[in-house]
Design a binder for these strands. Structure first.
Lengths: 149, 149
DNA sequence: CTCCGTGCAAAAGGTTTGCACTGGT
DNA sequence: ACCAGTGCAAACCTTTTGCACGGAG
């Protein structure tokens, strides 16, 4: 998330908290800020390691609880991840992912041309399932895995 | 998977086993058959509960090991799942999924019109990431969740 | 006879819960 | 002062690993 957006996102978060009568604790604020600053899609544990530095004594439990809360508020998303642990995605706009088969890295992809080209399945295909949104996973090998190792 | 395909799939599996010098044990054969028969995308535990009935005394460990092996052989796929545990998908052809936000059910979707409409992102978008395949998740509410409960 | 495959038990993550304390509002 | 939010420890769930037995080739 770009620095310009950061301010908006933080204020949005703060007003959502006030609206719902949720306390603006140091933990909540810092966890959200740290996720916004990251460009990857961290796991709960990665967030914990990160937060620990800024808020000594914070517990893993709190990190899990705050992440759940942020997802509830809709200010972050659970990212569909190939691996064993849940990843969190600060990017809430409609977008897609490049997924590396080898290292399981997730890379964000926004592509308006792609989205306007898509011919969504009609009711004959989806039966009574009502589509609200969609997201594409592109599988392949990322640059570092292809060159390095 | 339709009954017509079942035979083909089982034979393909058996010759793959022979090719690689893997024994055709009761457990392996039965686990694969049971996955083919299901129309959902079962977790390892659901497969275990299912297999237990047909192969008394089978262990969870074996189920996990056989599932891994089936994925290795390429006769089933790990399905990208929203929940905590891995789901397995007997449908190996290119297809997409309808994902229920509420009950997390996965429904297969094949749609040639959709696929031919998609304008894949170009190299400018994906940088050095080489796309090999893709899969779309359509999020929404499934019929039973919308009508019932 | 030699291994591969299995079952068991224990370990290894990842996440959730019960409970008592504490700090915001 | 009250109660939501926190930290700790223990429980829980899913998956993996070490090891010894047994059966197929």
């Amino acid at each position: 998330v770009h620095p310009v957006e950061m301010q908006d996102r933080l204020q949005q978060f703060q007003s959502l908290c006030r609206q719902r009568g949720l306390s603006l604790t140091v933990q909540r604020q810092r966890i959200f800020e740290l996720i916004l600053e990251r460009r990857d899609h961290p796991t709960a544990d990665q967030v914990y390691e990160d937060v620990k530095v800024h808020v000594p004594g914070v517990s893993r439990t709190t990190v899990y609880r705050v992440l759940d809360m942020l997802v509830d508020l809709g200010v972050i998303l659970k990212a569909p991840s190939p691996g064993s642990s849940t990843r969190y995605d600060p990017m809430t706009r409609h977008h897609h992912h490049l997924v590396c088969r080898r290292c399981e890295t997730l890379i964000d992809l926004e592509d308006a041309a792609l989205d306007s080209s898509i011919q969504l399945p009609g009711a004959e295909q989806t039966q009574a399932f009502q589509i609200e949104s969609y997201s594409i996973h592109f599988y392949g090998i990322c640059e570092s895995c292809r060159s390095g190792v």
